[in-house]
Nucleic acid binder design. Structure first.
Lengths: 242, 242
DNA sequence: AGTGCGTTTCGGCATAGTCGAACGAGCTTC
DNA sequence: GAAGCTCGTTCGACTATGCCGAAACGCACT
């Protein structure tokens, strides 16, 4: 782990927390000398990863971050393969559909239907159905101190073995009030690379069995296109206990 | 400029060029020892900025880039203020509308109407109306060797003073064949922060004067919300020659 | 005009990063 | 089936590099 690169990425993480920050704020947040942070920020500045407001001197994220994120999406096979399937799934079930990938203790939405507006949003893994699936397969990790999002947020996960065996996880107003979800894993030949979820208002919960079956079909179809031979994805320990 | 941070960002830039790259490819592209690149990549890996494919060992951009880009968009006042205006402008003119910001010798689209699908795309500044506006105001720079996109691409810019005085720049099939555009600057109190464009098929070109006027109105309205006092934005030298 | 804050610059010291070479795994070839 | 190759990865030593303290600049407010 290279120190200065690590610090640069921490600077970007700090900048994610607020619209704009002063050099001193970043320095105290990272417990570093302002001049140290200045050198890092100047380098990020040269690459457009951060910009400095002309009048106030404050720093914020720069447009190069958007370019990176967009290239990431364009190069993501999961997204390309999932897009037509989730459009059809949204039409068929009338639900909102999301596809997400793991990112540490969060999940990031990389595709959505019927509207793509949710693409890019980040949700704590322990608070959503997508995250529970990824946690069960070891693609996400639990945060040190799980954050309570709503009164319904479950801070310690149920048996992940059940999630793995059934290939399903649920979420009942645990991330945002009035929103429920049902998720299933998506895998490549050798790992669980993401999850797909149906998201509905609490009034429409629970979902009819037809929606559940449609979700299963879609997750399996996408996984097959990505090279997975079995679905739901099996792990050695589960195969042994079965 | 911190060397290792600069190199890390160069690694990300290399990764933007192809879906996936091997460690050796990155090393040769940057003219560095593989072990040096390995240290950098490992750090980026720990932060989710890159991911490594389990089977092939190849590297690609990671989901953290998407999170960064999304936060950038959320924190961008230009986008927030422009969104309602460009929706209305798209309705009124029937054209596609784009708002972009400068990024070196490129422009990055940060808002679009009627559909947001173009958000995140990158266009060389010299090849599009958006870029010509930003070039004229010094927000973009010309690349060392401008790239020819179509047969119509103009490699050396016309008089930027005219663009500044009229507040308009045009684009006739210079970036993509069959696509024409008309752009105007958007400014804050002390700088040109972006540009807004109408984009239409070549068949609908030239645009009627009403569309031109609507674009002007919208650019002025957004600029006013962002704190600009005059529009089109004036530079000292132009004010002197006037 | 004075004062305060925050950004920026500069130089010495020591740490942290760079590189070369060796290791190990996976794949192809013979 | 075994040997060669190529790739990613690890380790250790050298020294160049980035880190920090303190001082200077610019700006806004008093």
């Amino acid at each position: 782990m290279i120190q200065s690169v690590d610090r640069a990425l921490r600077v970007l993480a700090v900048l994610q927390g607020a619209r704009r920050r002063s050099l001193g704020e970043i320095a105290t947040a990272l417990e570093l000398a302002p001049s140290t942070v200045h050198g890092i920020v100047r380098t990020l500045l040269a690459h457009g990863m951060v910009v400095q407001e002309r009048d106030s001197g404050l720093y914020r994220l720069g447009p190069a971050t958007l370019r990176l994120g967009n290239v990431y999406l364009d190069n993501l096979e999961l997204r390309a393969h999932a897009q037509p399937w989730i459009s059809e799934l949204a039409d068929r079930t009338g639900c909102a559909v999301r596809v997400a990938v793991p990112l540490g203790d969060d999940v990031v939405v990389v595709a959505a239907a019927p509207t793509p507006v949710e693409v890019g949003i980040v949700i704590p893994a322990h608070a959503c159905a997508l995250g529970k699936v990824l946690l069960a397969h070891g693609a996400c990790v639990l945060p040190d101190r799980p954050r309570r999002m709503t009164g319904e947020t479950v801070l310690s996960p149920r048996d992940p073995g059940i999630v793995r065996r059934t290939g399903l996880a649920t979420e009942v107003e645990e991330a945002v009030l009035g929103e429920c979800g049902l998720a299933a894993p998506v895998a490549t030949a050798d790992e669980v690379c993401g999850a797909i979820a149906l998201v509905v208002p609490a009034a429409d919960w629970p979902l009819p069995p037809t929606a559940l079956a449609a979700l299963h079909q879609t997750a399996r179809a996408i996984s097959r296109e990505l090279g997975a031979s079995t679905w739901p994805p099996q792990r050695e320990e589960d195969a042994a206990t079965a």
